[in-house]
Write a protein that binds this DNA or RNA. Structure first.
Lengths: 402, 402
DNA sequence: CTAATTTGTAAACGGCCATGACGAAATAGT
DNA sequence: ACTATTTCGTCATGGCCGTTTACAAATTAG
């Protein structure tokens, strides 16, 4: 018997729960979880003042969360001020875990993250997946998942769900890979090919990278654009703390924004798309390099070595990116732009031309552009954390399991 | 004593109410209002099954709404089927009213809309406002508002709030006009210049036009782009039934999306912005016409008369619009594009080139482009309805007043 | 060592929706 | 015409949930 799928991508604490007393209760449980999770160890009284309920109400909520193993009582706080010291509460390190997986072009990776946000187990397999059929790849991925789950269970965790990051477009059902050019996959239903023991969510790697930035970034705002690139160039649009997905789930296709409308033909049918100027293939071609393994690393090394041809190619890519981003900034007015994925490693050579292009084309103060500190880890962490967030968003839904 | 400002632009039924029984009650009151408002006359039992509460609970909610004058009992329904007929409920036509106002380049307009969505009073003053100082314009507008309010009050309505549509950028405080090029206004705080008797909201005319389309359009989806143009070209981005405003409130600036990055200089500092190809001035220049009054009407007449120069200018504007929209569609993946405002009147000559450009640049089925049936009335109606929606979204907040 | 302060819990209270029963008002069947 | 059936609106009851109030416990300030 497979577990029921968790609510498709909840966007906030306890959204869409019915407006009845039970729904209220569930939302308040979620608020307690969020407060304890975000603000570190907290006493019941502190939680109460954070979320605006009374100490008595919080007491019963916390009791329930402790009974279900989602919260732990750490013991009395060290008293620094007058009054009886509170008893510190923290989210449990032995409860549910989020299993994140990433299907990259050159690797597979899986990790388990506990409610505290710590990575408690991981497994990686290197080797290209380009052009391989979905079935063998997913069999391999399943093997890694089982290993990570076993490791996590040895530490007292149980898997609350699996989230898979894919380098391609994912339908709004959060299961189907509609198109993944780098893998040459089309309309692959991952739900049918992965273990059904726990709830599954599939999403674009740019989206999960953006969520990781939102949840784990140092001072990432709640409105930003997260740009990431492998062969394609994708963006995660985070608006008011949640992802903008679009009707079909295809939002954020920055790579096919027209940069020079009469430019070279693009595989998408259009002409002069950003991808023709800043995509991996285009940059390699402009730099006079061959395609091969670890293409991004190669570019970075050559650029660092002072290869002027490579540097010029990257400068021009940055300029094109700047043009496309100008359009996006005019449309979305975000608070920041974050470069993630492969772009993070090439940032030193992309940023100057990108930023000067933005400055040139923006009237007021230009939108700040920063580089993700998560780098290539973003999508994997975002995937795992998305499961953790789902638990925080509705702890009652998880209480029965485990 | 002025009324408290209503919650800044609520986005959905009863968002952000505290999770306590009172908040639950308020949300349920809102759900009853929405059901009755949207689904026409409804019996208590029908409301109950619509919103998922029991008949008993709905009874008490309806009693409260009747007491506060927001809902009226129309009397027994004509029984078509077996069983005791219900008593039809409808939102009141004599309760609160939304006052909408529009500051256009060539006119001022004010109207009052009741909870049923009917326009119950209106006032218009023609004459250009281009280059006039804010104070006299707003004095004039205040006069119109007072007249409309007086008319509405004669019909048993009372003003629940004033919403003003402006042809320019509005800050997130929903009071300040940051920049309105057509009026030559900068950083004007409308809150200080308009009567403080009722809650005030100010927004971009494109945004209010988009909301009107969302609320009043025949079968407008919950995800669409509403493009409108006077001198500037603005877009309202409706995502999942609510407006995307951006951090500073400047989202939707389609007019400054780069179309030809090396094109002619634009006032914004960039080059080749959409506005340089599809803006009113650019089109008039391309058509070899002078600037003057009723410029859009002139273009439409000439085009209808078969003026080939004008038609070519509009075709090229449509093409440029298509390029910019391609970018927007790739980023946002909406369900539809709606042309409103001045563009609606020129649609016959813009649409062919626009749609062929979209078709050329889109891989899958192209995003459908339609024309607003509200036309130039959109922003005014959207403004008035935004106040009505605020009442529907939290009827309890309004209960005390009036 | 006492007063003050803060924490956590327990009992009483009040608000709110669900449940179940009932009268009212219509139709359907005999 | 009369009864059975169905549906509507309401009332009384009960359970759930957060609040209020009170109190014991644990710490600091003086």
């Amino acid at each position: 018997m497979s577990a029921p799928p968790h609510e498709a991508r909840p966007t906030g604490p306890g959204r869409a729960l019915p407006d009845t007393q039970q729904g209220m209760r569930r939302r308040n449980l979620a608020r307690v979880m969020h407060a304890v999770s975000a603000e570190g160890p907290l006493s019941r009284a502190a939680v109460a003042s954070h979320i605006g309920l009374t100490r008595a109400a919080v007491s019963t909520l916390v009791d329930e969360l402790i009974r279900t193993g989602l919260i732990e009582e750490l013991g009395p706080e060290r008293p620094g001020r007058v009054g009886r010291p509170g008893s510190a509460l923290a989210v449990s390190g032995r409860g549910p875990a989020g299993i994140g997986a990433e299907i990259g072009v050159d690797h597979l990776a899986v990790c388990a993250v506990d409610l505290r946000g710590e990575v408690r187990a991981r497994a990686v397999r290197h080797g290209t997946n380009r052009g391989r059929a979905p079935e063998p790849v997913l069999r391999e991925l399943t093997g890694l998942v089982r290993r990570v789950v076993a490791d996590a269970e040895r530490e007292g965790l149980w898997p609350a769900g699996l989230a898979v990051a894919v380098p391609g477009l994912v339908g709004r059902d959060a299961r189907t890979v509609v198109r993944a050019p780098n893998l040459d996959w089309h309309d692959v239903d991952l739900g049918a090919l992965l273990p059904g023991e726990f709830p599954l969510t599939v999403d674009n790697e740019a989206n999960f990278g953006g969520l990781a930035e939102l949840w784990l970034g140092a001072d990432t705002p709640r409105d930003f654009l997260h740009v990431s690139a492998e062969i394609g160039i994708g963006a995660a649009l985070v608006v008011d703390g949640s992802l903008l997905r679009g009707t079909r789930g295809f939002a954020g296709e920055l790579g096919h924004v027209p940069v020079h409308p009469d430019g070279p033909d693009c595989g998408c049918g259009s002409r002069g798309c950003l991808e023709q100027y800043a995509g991996e293939e285009a940059v390699l071609r402009a730099a006079g390099l061959e395609l091969g393994e670890d293409r991004v690393g190669l570019l970075a090394r050559r650029a660092a070595d002072g290869d002027e041809e490579v540097r010029r190619a990257l400068r021009e890519a940055g300029t094109a990116l700047g043009v496309a981003l100008t359009g996006a900034l005019n449309l979305l007015d975000p608070e920041a732009v974050v470069l993630g994925g492969a772009l993070a490693g090439l940032a030193p050579w992309l940023l100057p031309s990108l930023e000067s292009e933005l400055a040139r084309r923006t009237a007021g103060p230009p939108c700040p552009v920063s580089v993700s500190r998560l780098g290539p880890e973003g999508p994997l962490l975002g995937a795992a954390h998305s499961v953790v967030r789902a638990v925080l968003d509705d702890p009652a839904a998880v209480a029965g399991r485990g």
